[in-house]
Design a protein around this nucleic acid. Sequence first.
DNA 1: CTGCATCCGGGACGATACTG
DNA 2: CAGTATCGTCCCGGATGCAG
Lengths: 140, 140
Amino acid sequence: MSSTHTGVTTTPAALDPCGRADHPDCGIRDVLDRIGDKWSVLVVVELAGGPRRFRELQRAIDGISQRMLTLTVRRLERDGLVLRTVYPTVPAQVDYRLTETGAGLTHLVKALADWSLAHRAVIAEARQAYDRAHPGHDIH
Amino acid sequence: MSSTHTGVTTTPAALDPCGRADHPDCGIRDVLDRIGDKWSVLVVVELAGGPRRFRELQRAIDGISQRMLTLTVRRLERDGLVLRTVYPTVPAQVDYRLTETGAGLTHLVKALADWSLAHRAVIAEARQAYDRAHPGHDIH
DNA sequence: CTGCATCCGGGACGATACTG
DNA sequence: CAGTATCGTCCCGGATGCAG
């Protein structure tokens, strides 16, 4: 419990994304821990186009392993963002689709993608400029 | 940016949030690789409240180590999202503030936070339900 | 105060093999 | 097709110490 929050830095109410200066986290960490991993967002993006089967997902998402797809899709299901349906056919057939909650995420992802595309060039430029100005200064 | 921001899922053939079915990534990975780490977003959130000094940031962001704050802020600077200003005082004084580009991120973060708060309860419930239905089935 | 260097552990992730 | 199990690697991130 972080009850001792010594001296809150004065924050203009208009700028604080969460509206509470004493709690800068404001739940962002929650979302990030949930979909901030390597694959979740890509799965959501793919499912935004409609239901997909396991193999379809794997083929659509370049580079993902079976293991990670399983884990990712399982976690999304657990969080109620994805609905998993098993058809008792032979061989087994499973499809995944976004739930209501998961579909809501699509808009955010869309916004993220838009922002990314809009600033990709500027950021790349900034990067090159930085690297030019800081030679041998490796950040990671 | 004339794109339908609602009812995306109903689209039969062309479907993904980026408007190109052959490229499901659409740059989302870019954003995530950049701010999807453990601390970047929190730094952005804090800086959304105005310029901060190094120590202020560290105090504001609960749990971050000096090392990670340095790395995070450095990467943000490199990407042109944060501006770093050094004042030649003694001892050294540095402040960080969002650039135009970085400030734009604030809105996205806000949306993320809103979504998180709005669905936190539902997700937690879904989780418990899942765990109840799948005892011993550890996802992680 | 503001940082960088170093060591180190744990978890995320990939590759592979096997099952139903 | 749709997973599960196991193993190994990599790197993120924490702790600590030192420097300008």
